[in-house]
Computed example of a mutant assay.
Amino acid sequence: MKSFVCVLIVSALCLSANGQESFKCPDDFGFYPHTRSCDKYWKCDNNAAELKTCGNGLAFDASDPKFLTENCDYIHNVDCGDRSELEPPISTTHCERLYGIFPDDAKCDVFWNCWNGEASRYQCSPGLAYDREARVCMWADQVPECKNEEVAGGFTCPAAGEVSNSGSFSRHAHPDDCRKYYICLEGQAREYGCPIGTVFKIGDSDGTGNCEDPEDVPGCEDYYGDLDLKSIRKSELLAGLQSSGSGRSTPVTGKKAPRPAPASRNAPESAN
């Protein structure tokens, strides 16, 4: 009886293995998805089938209706459908799998692009954070994983009625960086940066200000140090970057002069 049970078990394993590993090529040449595994596929050459496995963290893209494309892509980019099985994760530092894009465990504005287990660090622009679901950088206050102290560097918007600027929209200088500033929208702070070659100038009224030339902002004249601002502005103008005014360009600083002391912020220059 015992030997009979063993025969049945071995037979079942063989049938399972044959069903998993055997494949009849529909054509002489092509690449075909596995019936159950999203990271496996069949390569047919001269009507001979070979089972292939994508890199750990990649999945086979079966969207080519002619089955002539051999393409393994990030799992989140592939519609696996009923092909739900995946190889077990192989992790390295900052990488849940050998291939993929993964959030940082400590900082919500940092993410890692992993390729064959090697992680490259990326950081979102000021005021943004990496959204794990959408896998893009979004406003930090819209990313649930961000702690309060990480959103806009911990800056807190003034309470309603505390600033003379009426309405729900106001601008506020960064305490340490002349180029950066905060926008408060309905009590929610978002960090911005002025276009390269300019710094934030506080306006006459509380909660106002604009990006201006450093020489027009007391205390921030030497922010860019010895950089050739005329060449920088010309390059940005030719590239069409200045037209946006969004301030999300790559930070370029010289000596990085700190924001002038609060007493100097009330200088009578208009910047409405």
Score class of each variant (00 low, 15 high):
residue 253 T to F: 05
residue 191 E to S: 13
residue 55 G to I: 08
residue 113 N to R: 11
residue 13 L to D: 03
residue 17 A to E: 06
residue 69 T to F: 08
residue 62 A to F: 02
residue 198 T to R: 10
residue 6 C to I: 13
residue 270 S to P: 00
residue 272 N to I: 12
residue 37 S to E: 14
residue 60 F to H: 05
residue 181 Y to K: 01
residue 76 H to A: 06
residue 78 V to A: 14
residue 214 P to L: 04
residue 80 C to H: 09
residue 114 C to I: 08
residue 47 N to L: 13
residue 88 P to M: 08
residue 49 A to W: 11
residue 97 R to A: 09
residue 6 C to L: 15
residue 107 K to H: 14
residue 222 D to N: 14
residue 184 C to K: 09
residue 134 A to D: 13
residue 17 A to L: 09
residue 208 T to Q: 15
residue 10 V to S: 07
residue 127 G to T: 07
residue 172 H to G: 06
residue 5 V to W: 08
residue 68 L to D: 10
residue 197 G to P: 01
residue 122 Y to I: 02
residue 8 L to T: 06
residue 40 K to N: 09
residue 178 C to L: 06
residue 26 P to Y: 03
residue 24 K to Q: 15
residue 136 V to A: 14
residue 192 Y to T: 00
residue 262 P to T: 11
residue 227 L to C: 03
residue 209 G to E: 09
residue 60 F to K: 05
residue 10 V to N: 03
residue 229 L to S: 01
residue 126 P to C: 07
residue 175 P to R: 06
residue 12 A to S: 10
residue 68 L to H: 09
residue 217 V to C: 05
residue 39 D to L: 08
residue 92 T to K: 10
residue 67 F to Q: 10
residue 97 R to Y: 09
residue 190 R to Y: 03
residue 171 R to Y: 10
residue 205 S to K: 12
residue 137 C to H: 04
residue 261 A to V: 10
residue 165 N to R: 15
residue 252 V to G: 07
residue 58 L to I: 06
residue 25 C to V: 04
residue 150 E to H: 12
residue 158 P to N: 05
residue 26 P to N: 07
residue 28 D to W: 08
residue 256 K to M: 11
residue 119 A to D: 08
residue 13 L to Y: 04
residue 15 L to K: 11
residue 139 W to D: 15
residue 94 H to A: 09
residue 102 F to R: 03
residue 211 C to S: 04
residue 6 C to F: 14
residue 38 C to R: 13
residue 62 A to V: 01
residue 186 E to I: 01
residue 31 F to K: 01
residue 258 P to Y: 06
residue 261 A to Y: 09
residue 200 F to H: 03
residue 170 S to A: 12
residue 64 D to K: 07
residue 138 M to C: 05
residue 255 K to E: 08
residue 116 N to T: 02
residue 227 L to V: 04
residue 228 D to C: 03
residue 95 C to M: 11
residue 17 A to C: 08
residue 243 S to H: 04
residue 20 Q to V: 04
residue 140 A to D: 11
residue 171 R to W: 03
residue 258 P to A: 03
residue 48 A to H: 07
residue 226 D to S: 15
residue 39 D to M: 12
residue 60 F to T: 02
residue 218 P to N: 13
residue 153 G to Q: 06
residue 63 S to L: 10
residue 217 V to I: 07
residue 173 A to M: 05
residue 6 C to P: 00
